[in-house]
Write a protein that binds this DNA or RNA. Structure first.
Lengths: 128, 128
DNA sequence: TGACGGCATAACCAAACGGTCATATAACAA
DNA sequence: TTGTTATATGACCGTTTGGTTATGCCGTCA
């Protein structure tokens, strides 16, 4: 993980750390929208506020603007969503793997215990 | 999506929007660690700085502290990672679905065009 | 007991964030 | 040209963030 990757993830996660922006992302998942469209669903926020939020999403690489007359349709890109998701999944998987090994270890302890003391209380395996 | 869910995601994504904290999470995926352990890998940051970062992760529900003598081992929880990941995947999937429908639409336009004007220039299918 | 180790907390600071209103710009419409 | 619509930008403001140093608290050990 280099600085560039760190920066991209900083911006991506940072952009998603705001309910208004997540709301915008959710809307854009259904198709592109103009800034005015986004103002309409933006929970009473002003147009400059929404434009700022779109700027944040754009800097994070989550959206881009095109041009259509005087409109600037905003469209969502899947790539950064995928990257953020990949980061989460990687460490979630690693954590679950760690748990699994811990379980194995506890089980091993248990069977050793068993062979020495056949009637000892069983250590319960983590469910989930 | 209610306020509570929004708040949880605010905190979770916000906590992950910092390279130091992601580094901590990555470390904890391999097993629990004391604050001092985290200071050691924390890129030259002071102990209070690391403690603050751990506090942020804890408020986000990503980690918890237990007690072991004078140590306070920090351990990572998979649940919030899963929730954040689920949010991302939901809208990423929806977006890809939207793209797929757009492709179908374009293809339909194209075949209609073809039947009316068999020799017209073909509309190029979105590559990306 | 006294001293040390591991961690938390307080006070402080600069910079970033998230909003406002007012204004500028750019494209279309009459 | 003059107006109107869609969006961007600037100036400003209070709050939050992310770091620092100094210090306090609690558990362990000689």
């Amino acid at each position: 993980m280099n600085r560039t990757a760190d920066l991209k993830l900083d911006l991506a996660f940072g952009a998603l750390a705001d309910a208004t922006r997540r709301h915008i992302v959710a809307r854009l998942a259904k198709g592109e929208a103009s800034v005015n469209d986004l103002v309409a669903i933006g929970g009473g926020l002003s147009q400059p506020a929404i434009t700022k939020h779109v700027n944040v999403l754009e800097r994070a690489g989550l959206v881009s603007r095109s041009r259509d007359g005087r409109r600037r349709p905003v469209r969502l890109h899947a790539e950064r969503l995928r990257e953020a998701s990949a980061w989460l999944d990687r460490y979630r998987a690693q954590l679950e793997e760690t748990y699994a090994r811990l379980d194995d270890y506890l089980e091993e302890l248990q069977s050793k215990e068993k062979s020495r003391e056949p009637k000892s209380v069983r250590i319960r395996r983590r469910s989930r």
